[in-house]
Design a protein around this nucleic acid. Structure first.
Length: 454
RNA sequence: GGCCCCAUCGUCUAACGGUUAGGACAGCGGGUUUUCAGUCCGUAAAUCGGGGUUCGAUUCCCCGUGGGGUCACCA
Protein backbone atom coordinates (compact mmCIF):
# COMPACT_ATOMS: atom_id res chain seq x y z
CA UNK A 1 0.00 0.00 0.00
CA UNK A 2 1.42 3.33 -0.99
CA UNK A 3 1.46 6.42 1.18
CA UNK A 4 -1.27 7.85 -1.00
CA UNK A 5 -3.64 5.05 -0.31
CA UNK A 6 -3.19 5.49 3.40
CA UNK A 7 -4.36 9.08 3.20
CA UNK A 8 -7.94 10.13 3.11
CA UNK A 9 -9.64 9.54 -0.18
CA UNK A 10 -10.99 12.70 -1.78
CA UNK A 11 -12.61 12.63 -5.21
CA UNK A 12 -14.40 15.30 -7.12
CA UNK A 13 -16.72 15.83 -10.00
CA UNK A 14 -15.87 18.98 -11.86
CA UNK A 15 -18.42 19.71 -14.56
CA UNK A 16 -18.58 22.92 -16.50
CA UNK A 17 -22.13 24.31 -16.53
CA UNK A 18 -22.06 24.94 -20.25
CA UNK A 19 -24.56 22.32 -21.31
CA UNK A 20 -27.16 19.85 -20.15
CA UNK A 21 -26.22 17.08 -17.73
CA UNK A 22 -24.92 14.39 -20.03
CA UNK A 23 -25.38 10.73 -19.22
CA UNK A 24 -21.59 10.29 -19.34
CA UNK A 25 -21.10 13.08 -16.85
CA UNK A 26 -23.55 11.37 -14.55
CA UNK A 27 -21.58 8.14 -14.80
CA UNK A 28 -18.29 9.88 -14.04
CA UNK A 29 -19.91 11.48 -11.01
CA UNK A 30 -21.22 8.09 -9.95
CA UNK A 31 -17.79 6.46 -10.16
CA UNK A 32 -16.23 9.26 -8.15
CA UNK A 33 -18.97 8.99 -5.58
CA UNK A 34 -18.72 5.21 -5.34
CA UNK A 35 -14.97 5.26 -4.97
CA UNK A 36 -15.01 7.94 -2.28
CA UNK A 37 -17.78 6.28 -0.29
CA UNK A 38 -16.21 2.86 -0.67
CA UNK A 39 -13.13 4.17 1.06
CA UNK A 40 -14.88 6.30 3.64
CA UNK A 41 -13.70 9.37 1.81
CA UNK A 42 -15.05 12.66 0.63
CA UNK A 43 -16.78 13.47 -2.64
CA UNK A 44 -16.68 17.06 -3.85
CA UNK A 45 -18.85 18.73 -6.46
CA UNK A 46 -17.09 21.64 -8.09
CA UNK A 47 -18.64 23.78 -10.77
CA UNK A 48 -16.01 24.82 -13.29
CA UNK A 49 -17.60 28.01 -14.48
CA UNK A 50 -14.53 30.05 -15.33
CA UNK A 51 -15.81 30.55 -18.86
CA UNK A 52 -18.17 33.40 -18.14
CA UNK A 53 -19.53 33.51 -21.64
CA UNK A 54 -20.69 29.92 -21.82
CA UNK A 55 -21.50 29.10 -18.22
CA UNK A 56 -25.17 29.25 -17.31
CA UNK A 57 -26.86 29.05 -13.95
CA UNK A 58 -29.61 26.88 -15.39
CA UNK A 59 -27.07 24.25 -16.35
CA UNK A 60 -25.55 24.34 -12.90
CA UNK A 61 -29.04 23.84 -11.48
CA UNK A 62 -29.62 20.95 -13.83
CA UNK A 63 -26.40 19.25 -12.77
CA UNK A 64 -27.20 19.67 -9.09
CA UNK A 65 -30.75 18.50 -9.52
CA UNK A 66 -29.75 15.55 -11.68
CA UNK A 67 -27.07 14.20 -9.37
CA UNK A 68 -29.33 14.75 -6.43
CA UNK A 69 -32.06 12.77 -8.13
CA UNK A 70 -29.68 9.90 -8.76
CA UNK A 71 -28.89 9.80 -5.08
CA UNK A 72 -25.32 10.96 -5.57
CA UNK A 73 -24.61 13.24 -2.64
CA UNK A 74 -21.59 15.46 -2.19
CA UNK A 75 -19.79 16.48 0.96
CA UNK A 76 -18.71 19.87 -0.31
CA UNK A 77 -19.65 22.23 -3.09
CA UNK A 78 -17.46 24.83 -4.76
CA UNK A 79 -17.88 27.28 -7.58
CA UNK A 80 -14.71 28.28 -9.40
CA UNK A 81 -16.08 31.68 -10.32
CA UNK A 82 -15.93 32.53 -6.62
CA UNK A 83 -12.27 31.56 -6.25
CA UNK A 84 -10.50 34.01 -8.54
CA UNK A 85 -8.49 35.47 -5.65
CA UNK A 86 -7.07 32.04 -4.82
CA UNK A 87 -5.98 31.45 -8.40
CA UNK A 88 -4.44 34.90 -8.50
CA UNK A 89 -2.37 34.09 -5.47
CA UNK A 90 -0.97 30.95 -7.06
CA UNK A 91 -0.43 32.77 -10.32
CA UNK A 92 1.58 35.51 -8.64
CA UNK A 93 3.66 32.98 -6.75
CA UNK A 94 4.39 31.01 -9.90
CA UNK A 95 5.51 34.19 -11.66
CA UNK A 96 7.61 35.18 -8.68
CA UNK A 97 9.31 31.79 -8.71
CA UNK A 98 10.00 32.05 -12.39
CA UNK A 99 7.69 29.13 -13.22
CA UNK A 100 5.43 31.32 -15.28
CA UNK A 101 5.59 34.71 -16.91
CA UNK A 102 3.40 37.49 -18.17
CA UNK A 103 3.40 37.82 -21.91
CA UNK A 104 2.21 40.88 -23.73
CA UNK A 105 0.72 39.81 -27.03
CA UNK A 106 -2.15 40.28 -29.38
CA UNK A 107 -5.38 38.85 -28.11
CA UNK A 108 -6.57 35.77 -29.93
CA UNK A 109 -10.08 36.31 -28.71
CA UNK A 110 -10.20 39.99 -29.64
CA UNK A 111 -7.76 40.46 -32.52
CA UNK A 112 -6.31 43.93 -32.70
CA UNK A 113 -6.20 44.41 -28.94
CA UNK A 114 -3.20 43.71 -26.79
CA UNK A 115 -3.42 41.58 -23.65
CA UNK A 116 -1.11 40.33 -20.93
CA UNK A 117 -1.65 36.59 -20.69
CA UNK A 118 0.21 34.33 -18.30
CA UNK A 119 2.20 31.48 -19.78
CA UNK A 120 3.76 28.54 -18.02
CA UNK A 121 7.47 28.16 -18.49
CA UNK A 122 7.61 24.71 -19.99
CA UNK A 123 10.64 22.74 -18.78
CA UNK A 124 10.22 20.56 -21.88
CA UNK A 125 10.44 17.25 -20.12
CA UNK A 126 8.94 13.86 -20.69
CA UNK A 127 6.11 13.18 -18.29
CA UNK A 128 5.17 9.68 -17.24
CA UNK A 129 2.23 9.11 -14.97
CA UNK A 130 0.57 6.01 -13.63
CA UNK A 131 -3.05 5.60 -14.59
CA UNK A 132 -4.97 3.27 -12.28
CA UNK A 133 -6.88 1.85 -15.20
CA UNK A 134 -4.37 1.92 -18.05
CA UNK A 135 -0.99 1.72 -16.40
CA UNK A 136 1.92 3.95 -17.36
CA UNK A 137 1.30 6.70 -19.87
CA UNK A 138 4.13 8.80 -21.26
CA UNK A 139 4.04 12.14 -23.05
CA UNK A 140 6.69 14.41 -24.45
CA UNK A 141 5.57 17.84 -23.28
CA UNK A 142 7.85 19.75 -25.62
CA UNK A 143 5.14 20.10 -28.20
CA UNK A 144 2.95 21.87 -25.63
CA UNK A 145 5.23 24.89 -25.57
CA UNK A 146 4.75 27.64 -23.03
CA UNK A 147 1.01 27.29 -22.95
CA UNK A 148 -1.32 29.97 -21.59
CA UNK A 149 -2.61 29.32 -18.08
CA UNK A 150 -4.46 32.60 -17.53
CA UNK A 151 -5.97 35.34 -19.63
CA UNK A 152 -4.90 37.70 -16.89
CA UNK A 153 -4.01 37.51 -13.22
CA UNK A 154 -7.70 37.55 -12.37
CA UNK A 155 -8.80 35.26 -15.13
CA UNK A 156 -7.14 31.87 -14.75
CA UNK A 157 -7.88 29.18 -17.30
CA UNK A 158 -9.15 25.65 -16.89
CA UNK A 159 -5.88 23.73 -16.53
CA UNK A 160 -4.62 26.10 -13.88
CA UNK A 161 -7.81 26.27 -11.85
CA UNK A 162 -8.17 22.50 -11.89
CA UNK A 163 -4.70 21.96 -10.55
CA UNK A 164 -4.99 24.66 -7.90
CA UNK A 165 -8.36 23.40 -6.71
CA UNK A 166 -7.40 19.76 -6.65
CA UNK A 167 -4.37 20.78 -4.61
CA UNK A 168 -6.29 23.08 -2.26
CA UNK A 169 -9.07 20.55 -1.78
CA UNK A 170 -6.58 17.74 -1.28
CA UNK A 171 -8.09 15.65 -4.01
CA UNK A 172 -6.41 12.25 -3.83
CA UNK A 173 -7.93 10.58 -6.89
CA UNK A 174 -8.82 12.20 -10.16
CA UNK A 175 -11.38 9.95 -11.82
CA UNK A 176 -12.53 11.40 -15.11
CA UNK A 177 -13.25 10.61 -18.73
CA UNK A 178 -10.67 9.27 -21.12
CA UNK A 179 -10.91 12.49 -23.09
CA UNK A 180 -8.86 14.05 -20.32
CA UNK A 181 -5.81 11.82 -20.79
CA UNK A 182 -4.17 14.33 -23.05
CA UNK A 183 -4.83 17.10 -20.52
CA UNK A 184 -2.96 15.26 -17.82
CA UNK A 185 0.65 16.05 -18.80
CA UNK A 186 -0.25 19.75 -19.00
CA UNK A 187 -1.78 19.62 -15.54
CA UNK A 188 1.17 17.72 -14.11
CA UNK A 189 3.46 20.44 -15.42
CA UNK A 190 1.37 23.00 -13.56
CA UNK A 191 1.42 20.86 -10.42
CA UNK A 192 5.17 20.83 -10.52
CA UNK A 193 5.26 24.56 -11.09
CA UNK A 194 3.17 25.36 -8.02
CA UNK A 195 4.53 22.56 -5.87
CA UNK A 196 1.34 20.51 -5.71
CA UNK A 197 1.48 16.79 -5.23
CA UNK A 198 0.27 14.53 -7.96
CA UNK A 199 -3.07 12.78 -7.38
CA UNK A 200 -3.77 9.25 -8.50
CA UNK A 201 -5.28 9.25 -11.96
CA UNK A 202 -7.95 6.96 -13.30
CA UNK A 203 -9.26 7.66 -16.78
CA UNK A 204 -12.61 6.11 -17.53
CA UNK A 205 -13.55 4.64 -20.89
CA UNK A 206 -16.08 6.69 -22.82
CA UNK A 207 -19.72 5.87 -23.43
CA UNK A 208 -20.20 5.26 -27.14
CA UNK A 209 -23.11 5.40 -29.56
CA UNK A 210 -24.16 2.17 -31.34
CA UNK A 211 -21.86 3.04 -34.24
CA UNK A 212 -18.93 3.41 -31.82
CA UNK A 213 -18.72 7.13 -32.31
CA UNK A 214 -19.06 9.61 -29.50
CA UNK A 215 -22.54 9.52 -28.04
CA UNK A 216 -24.40 12.61 -29.20
CA UNK A 217 -27.91 13.97 -29.60
CA UNK A 218 -28.34 12.50 -33.02
CA UNK A 219 -28.15 9.02 -31.49
CA UNK A 220 -31.10 9.71 -29.24
CA UNK A 221 -31.19 10.89 -25.69
CA UNK A 222 -27.94 11.91 -24.04
CA UNK A 223 -29.35 14.09 -21.32
CA UNK A 224 -30.01 12.56 -17.95
CA UNK A 225 -33.20 14.60 -17.69
CA UNK A 226 -34.50 12.98 -20.85
CA UNK A 227 -34.20 9.49 -19.38
CA UNK A 228 -35.84 10.70 -16.25
CA UNK A 229 -38.68 12.18 -18.27
CA UNK A 230 -39.15 8.92 -20.13
CA UNK A 231 -39.71 7.16 -16.87
CA UNK A 232 -36.41 5.48 -16.17
CA UNK A 233 -36.05 5.16 -12.45
CA UNK A 234 -33.12 6.38 -10.46
CA UNK A 235 -31.89 3.04 -9.19
CA UNK A 236 -32.00 1.42 -12.64
CA UNK A 237 -30.03 4.22 -14.22
CA UNK A 238 -27.45 4.08 -11.46
CA UNK A 239 -27.23 0.32 -11.76
CA UNK A 240 -26.87 0.36 -15.52
CA UNK A 241 -24.38 3.20 -15.61
CA UNK A 242 -22.24 1.54 -12.95
CA UNK A 243 -22.06 -1.69 -14.91
CA UNK A 244 -21.29 0.09 -18.15
CA UNK A 245 -17.53 -0.11 -18.08
CA UNK A 246 -17.21 -1.67 -14.67
CA UNK A 247 -17.93 -5.09 -13.30
CA UNK A 248 -17.85 -6.45 -9.77
CA UNK A 249 -16.05 -9.63 -10.78
CA UNK A 250 -19.12 -11.80 -10.32
CA UNK A 251 -22.17 -12.62 -12.42
CA UNK A 252 -24.39 -10.48 -10.28
CA UNK A 253 -25.98 -7.59 -12.17
CA UNK A 254 -28.67 -6.13 -9.95
CA UNK A 255 -27.43 -3.59 -7.45
CA UNK A 256 -28.81 -0.74 -5.42
CA UNK A 257 -26.65 2.32 -4.90
CA UNK A 258 -25.50 1.33 -1.42
CA UNK A 259 -24.62 -2.15 -2.65
CA UNK A 260 -22.52 -0.63 -5.40
CA UNK A 261 -20.67 1.37 -2.78
CA UNK A 262 -19.78 -1.86 -1.01
CA UNK A 263 -18.58 -3.61 -4.16
CA UNK A 264 -16.95 -0.83 -6.10
CA UNK A 265 -13.32 -1.12 -7.06
CA UNK A 266 -11.21 0.70 -9.63
CA UNK A 267 -9.70 -2.61 -10.73
CA UNK A 268 -13.03 -3.68 -12.19
CA UNK A 269 -13.07 -0.84 -14.68
CA UNK A 270 -12.81 -1.64 -18.35
CA UNK A 271 -10.22 -0.06 -20.62
CA UNK A 272 -12.25 0.18 -23.77
CA UNK A 273 -15.28 2.30 -24.56
CA UNK A 274 -18.74 0.88 -24.03
CA UNK A 275 -21.72 1.24 -26.31
CA UNK A 276 -24.82 2.56 -24.62
CA UNK A 277 -27.44 -0.15 -25.04
CA UNK A 278 -30.93 1.16 -24.42
CA UNK A 279 -32.39 -2.37 -24.45
CA UNK A 280 -30.32 -3.41 -21.50
CA UNK A 281 -31.23 -0.22 -19.68
CA UNK A 282 -34.89 -1.10 -20.19
CA UNK A 283 -34.25 -4.50 -18.68
CA UNK A 284 -32.61 -2.94 -15.65
CA UNK A 285 -35.54 -0.56 -15.36
CA UNK A 286 -38.05 -3.36 -15.33
CA UNK A 287 -36.03 -5.36 -12.85
CA UNK A 288 -35.78 -2.44 -10.49
CA UNK A 289 -39.47 -1.62 -10.69
CA UNK A 290 -40.24 -5.25 -10.00
CA UNK A 291 -39.35 -4.60 -6.37
CA UNK A 292 -41.92 -1.84 -6.06
CA UNK A 293 -45.21 -2.30 -4.25
CA UNK A 294 -48.40 -2.06 -6.29
CA UNK A 295 -49.18 1.16 -4.46
CA UNK A 296 -45.87 2.70 -5.45
CA UNK A 297 -46.30 1.47 -8.99
CA UNK A 298 -49.78 2.97 -9.07
CA UNK A 299 -48.40 6.43 -8.36
CA UNK A 300 -45.87 5.93 -11.12
CA UNK A 301 -48.56 4.87 -13.58
CA UNK A 302 -51.32 7.30 -12.80
CA UNK A 303 -49.37 10.38 -13.83
CA UNK A 304 -48.60 8.76 -17.17
CA UNK A 305 -52.18 8.04 -18.20
CA UNK A 306 -53.07 10.41 -21.02
CA UNK A 307 -56.35 12.27 -21.17
CA UNK A 308 -57.42 10.05 -24.00
CA UNK A 309 -57.88 7.33 -21.39
CA UNK A 310 -58.98 9.35 -18.36
CA UNK A 311 -61.79 10.78 -20.45
CA UNK A 312 -63.13 7.33 -21.30
CA UNK A 313 -66.71 6.76 -19.98
CA UNK A 314 -65.86 4.17 -17.36
CA UNK A 315 -62.61 5.74 -16.18
CA UNK A 316 -61.93 5.43 -12.47
CA UNK A 317 -58.87 5.09 -10.31
CA UNK A 318 -60.32 1.94 -8.85
CA UNK A 319 -60.36 0.30 -12.28
CA UNK A 320 -56.83 1.49 -12.85
CA UNK A 321 -55.79 0.01 -9.55
CA UNK A 322 -57.03 -3.40 -10.61
CA UNK A 323 -55.35 -2.97 -13.96
CA UNK A 324 -51.93 -2.31 -12.41
CA UNK A 325 -50.64 -5.90 -12.53
CA UNK A 326 -51.51 -6.04 -16.22
CA UNK A 327 -49.68 -2.80 -16.99
CA UNK A 328 -46.77 -3.93 -14.90
CA UNK A 329 -46.04 -7.09 -16.77
CA UNK A 330 -46.06 -5.38 -20.16
CA UNK A 331 -44.06 -2.31 -19.26
CA UNK A 332 -40.34 -1.73 -19.12
CA UNK A 333 -40.41 2.02 -18.76
CA UNK A 334 -43.03 4.68 -18.12
CA UNK A 335 -43.16 6.08 -21.63
CA UNK A 336 -44.50 2.74 -22.82
CA UNK A 337 -47.51 3.13 -20.57
CA UNK A 338 -48.47 6.36 -22.26
CA UNK A 339 -47.79 4.90 -25.69
CA UNK A 340 -49.89 1.79 -24.97
CA UNK A 341 -52.69 3.99 -23.70
CA UNK A 342 -52.58 6.03 -26.87
CA UNK A 343 -52.67 2.82 -28.89
CA UNK A 344 -55.82 1.81 -27.05
CA UNK A 345 -54.26 -1.20 -25.34
CA UNK A 346 -56.05 -0.52 -22.09
CA UNK A 347 -59.32 0.88 -23.40
CA UNK A 348 -61.15 -2.29 -22.43
CA UNK A 349 -60.76 -1.37 -18.77
CA UNK A 350 -62.51 1.96 -19.13
CA UNK A 351 -64.95 1.61 -22.01
CA UNK A 352 -67.18 -1.08 -23.45
CA UNK A 353 -65.95 -2.20 -26.87
CA UNK A 354 -67.96 -1.86 -30.03
CA UNK A 355 -68.57 -5.53 -30.86
CA UNK A 356 -67.45 -6.81 -34.25
CA UNK A 357 -69.20 -10.04 -35.28
CA UNK A 358 -66.33 -10.98 -37.56
CA UNK A 359 -63.87 -10.75 -34.70
CA UNK A 360 -66.19 -12.48 -32.23
CA UNK A 361 -66.33 -15.49 -34.47
CA UNK A 362 -63.96 -18.27 -33.42
CA UNK A 363 -61.80 -19.43 -36.31
CA UNK A 364 -63.33 -22.93 -36.31
CA UNK A 365 -66.80 -21.51 -36.67
CA UNK A 366 -68.20 -20.90 -40.12
CA UNK A 367 -70.39 -18.00 -39.01
CA UNK A 368 -70.73 -15.69 -36.02
CA UNK A 369 -74.04 -17.41 -35.43
CA UNK A 370 -72.26 -20.57 -34.36
CA UNK A 371 -70.49 -18.60 -31.69
CA UNK A 372 -73.72 -17.26 -30.26
CA UNK A 373 -74.85 -20.20 -28.08
CA UNK A 374 -71.51 -20.29 -26.36
CA UNK A 375 -71.64 -16.59 -25.60
CA UNK A 376 -75.14 -17.02 -24.20
CA UNK A 377 -73.93 -19.80 -21.96
CA UNK A 378 -71.01 -17.61 -20.91
CA UNK A 379 -73.42 -14.84 -19.97
CA UNK A 380 -75.19 -17.28 -17.67
CA UNK A 381 -71.94 -18.33 -16.03
CA UNK A 382 -70.63 -14.81 -15.64
CA UNK A 383 -73.91 -13.74 -14.05
CA UNK A 384 -73.10 -16.03 -11.15
CA UNK A 385 -69.68 -14.56 -10.46
CA UNK A 386 -69.57 -12.28 -7.43
CA UNK A 387 -67.78 -8.96 -7.75
CA UNK A 388 -64.20 -8.47 -6.64
CA UNK A 389 -62.87 -11.96 -7.17
CA UNK A 390 -59.31 -12.64 -8.20
CA UNK A 391 -58.69 -13.84 -11.77
CA UNK A 392 -57.94 -17.36 -10.56
CA UNK A 393 -61.28 -17.58 -8.76
CA UNK A 394 -63.12 -16.14 -11.74
CA UNK A 395 -61.53 -18.77 -13.91
CA UNK A 396 -63.01 -21.55 -11.79
CA UNK A 397 -66.51 -20.40 -12.75
CA UNK A 398 -65.81 -20.76 -16.44
CA UNK A 399 -63.10 -23.32 -16.80
CA UNK A 400 -65.20 -26.47 -16.72
CA UNK A 401 -67.37 -25.18 -19.52
CA UNK A 402 -64.31 -24.13 -21.51
CA UNK A 403 -62.91 -27.65 -21.27
CA UNK A 404 -66.22 -29.16 -22.22
CA UNK A 405 -66.96 -26.92 -25.20
CA UNK A 406 -63.42 -26.33 -26.32
CA UNK A 407 -61.02 -23.77 -24.92
CA UNK A 408 -60.56 -21.77 -28.06
CA UNK A 409 -64.24 -21.90 -28.92
CA UNK A 410 -65.17 -20.46 -25.53
CA UNK A 411 -62.27 -18.30 -24.49
CA UNK A 412 -61.70 -16.48 -27.75
CA UNK A 413 -65.26 -15.13 -28.13
CA UNK A 414 -65.38 -14.32 -24.44
CA UNK A 415 -62.21 -12.30 -24.57
CA UNK A 416 -63.24 -10.47 -27.72
CA UNK A 417 -66.71 -9.73 -26.30
CA UNK A 418 -65.02 -8.23 -23.28
CA UNK A 419 -62.24 -6.28 -25.00
CA UNK A 420 -63.16 -5.97 -28.67
CA UNK A 421 -59.56 -6.67 -29.52
CA UNK A 422 -57.55 -9.29 -31.25
CA UNK A 423 -54.89 -9.06 -28.57
CA UNK A 424 -55.47 -8.41 -24.91
CA UNK A 425 -55.01 -9.87 -21.45
CA UNK A 426 -56.83 -13.12 -20.72
CA UNK A 427 -60.61 -12.94 -20.08
CA UNK A 428 -60.39 -13.81 -16.38
CA UNK A 429 -58.09 -10.91 -15.76
CA UNK A 430 -60.34 -8.66 -17.81
CA UNK A 431 -63.39 -9.65 -15.75
CA UNK A 432 -61.40 -9.01 -12.62
CA UNK A 433 -60.61 -5.51 -13.82
CA UNK A 434 -64.03 -4.45 -15.08
CA UNK A 435 -66.14 -6.44 -12.64
CA UNK A 436 -68.53 -9.30 -13.39
CA UNK A 437 -71.61 -7.10 -13.81
CA UNK A 438 -69.93 -5.04 -16.49
CA UNK A 439 -68.61 -8.23 -18.07
CA UNK A 440 -72.13 -9.63 -18.20
CA UNK A 441 -73.35 -6.50 -19.94
CA UNK A 442 -70.63 -6.68 -22.56
CA UNK A 443 -71.34 -10.31 -23.32
CA UNK A 444 -75.02 -9.53 -23.77
CA UNK A 445 -74.21 -6.71 -26.12
CA UNK A 446 -72.01 -9.08 -28.13
CA UNK A 447 -74.90 -11.56 -28.37
CA UNK A 448 -77.29 -8.84 -29.52
CA UNK A 449 -74.82 -7.67 -32.10
CA UNK A 450 -74.53 -11.13 -33.60
CA UNK A 451 -78.31 -11.47 -33.70
CA UNK A 452 -78.76 -8.11 -35.36
CA UNK A 453 -76.06 -8.85 -37.90
CA UNK A 454 -78.19 -11.69 -39.29
C1' G B 1 -1.83 14.33 -39.95
C1' G B 2 1.21 14.48 -34.80
C1' C B 3 0.66 12.57 -29.96
C1' C B 4 -2.07 9.27 -26.72
C1' C B 5 -5.53 5.27 -25.62
C1' C B 6 -8.10 0.79 -26.88
C1' A B 7 -9.32 -4.33 -29.27
C1' U B 8 -13.44 -11.69 -26.35
C1' C B 9 -20.45 -13.45 -28.98
C1' G B 10 -24.67 -8.08 -32.38
C1' U B 11 -24.18 -5.41 -27.21
C1' C B 12 -22.31 -5.19 -21.80
C1' U B 13 -18.69 -8.46 -19.99
C1' A B 14 -15.91 -13.14 -17.20
C1' A B 15 -11.66 -16.13 -17.84
C1' C B 16 -5.39 -11.98 -14.42
C1' G B 17 -0.46 -18.90 -19.22
C1' G B 18 -3.65 -24.68 -19.03
C1' U B 19 -11.69 -23.74 -19.19
C1' U B 20 -15.97 -27.95 -23.62
C1' A B 21 -13.87 -19.60 -23.72
C1' G B 22 -18.62 -18.55 -18.69
C1' G B 23 -22.81 -14.95 -17.60
C1' A B 24 -26.33 -11.04 -18.93
C1' C B 25 -29.25 -8.07 -22.77
C1' A B 26 -31.01 -8.58 -27.57
C1' G B 27 -32.12 -12.86 -31.29
C1' C B 28 -34.06 -17.65 -32.39
C1' G B 29 -36.89 -22.36 -30.86
C1' G B 30 -40.18 -24.75 -27.50
C1' G B 31 -43.37 -25.33 -22.94
C1' U B 32 -46.64 -22.44 -20.32
C1' U B 33 -54.78 -24.09 -19.42
C1' U B 34 -57.38 -19.35 -26.46
C1' U B 35 -54.56 -14.19 -28.49
C1' C B 36 -50.77 -10.45 -27.19
C1' A B 37 -47.72 -9.81 -23.17
C1' G B 38 -45.28 -12.15 -19.19
C1' U B 39 -42.84 -16.41 -17.38
C1' C B 40 -39.91 -21.08 -17.64
C1' C B 41 -36.63 -24.14 -20.49
C1' G B 42 -33.51 -24.65 -24.51
C1' U B 43 -30.41 -22.77 -28.65
C1' A B 44 -27.16 -20.11 -31.89
C1' A B 45 -23.30 -16.51 -31.38
C1' A B 46 -16.71 -14.22 -29.88
C1' U B 47 -10.89 -14.31 -28.66
C1' C B 48 -9.07 -8.43 -35.39
C1' G B 49 -4.55 -10.30 -38.56
C1' G B 50 0.70 -11.75 -38.64
C1' G B 51 5.02 -12.80 -36.14
C1' G B 52 7.42 -14.08 -31.68
C1' U B 53 8.16 -15.90 -25.98
C1' U B 54 6.49 -20.62 -23.83
C1' C B 55 5.56 -27.55 -23.13
C1' G B 56 1.09 -24.44 -23.65
C1' A B 57 -1.48 -18.43 -25.35
C1' U B 58 -7.82 -14.75 -25.05
C1' U B 59 -3.98 -13.75 -21.49
C1' C B 60 3.06 -11.61 -22.22
C1' C B 61 6.19 -8.87 -26.38
C1' C B 62 6.55 -6.70 -31.47
C1' C B 63 4.41 -5.23 -36.14
C1' G B 64 0.08 -4.46 -38.90
C1' U B 65 -5.15 -3.34 -39.17
C1' G B 66 -9.34 -1.19 -37.11
C1' G B 67 -11.80 2.06 -33.64
C1' G B 68 -11.58 6.13 -30.28
C1' G B 69 -9.59 10.53 -27.82
C1' U B 70 -6.88 15.02 -28.21
C1' C B 71 -4.28 18.82 -30.50
C1' A B 72 -7.71 26.95 -27.71
C1' C B 73 -6.43 33.22 -24.62
C1' C B 74 -13.30 26.24 -23.97
C1' A B 75 -13.82 23.04 -20.18
Amino acid sequence: MSIFERQKVVTRMAPSPTGHLHIGTARTALFNYLFAKRHGGVFILRTEDTDKERSKKEFEDEIIEGLDWLGITWDAFYRQSERAAIYRGYLEKAIENGKAYVSKEESKMHPGTEVEVVRLKNPNTTITFMDKIRGEITFDTTELGDFVIARSLDDALYHFTVVVDDHEMEVSHVIRGEDHISNTPRQILIQEAIGAERPVYAHLPLILAPDRSKLSKRHGAVMLSEYRRQGYVRSALVNYLALLGWNPGTDRELYELDELVESFDLSGIQKSGAIFDIEKLKWFNKEHMRTWSDAAYFDYVVERIPERVTSLPEWSEERLRRLIPVIRERTNVGDEITADCMAGEYDFAFAAPKPDPALLKWRNDATPRQTLPRLQKLAELVARIPESLEPEEIKSYIWDYALEAGKGEVLWPLRVALTGRERSPDPFTVIHVIGSAEAYKRIKVACDTILMAE
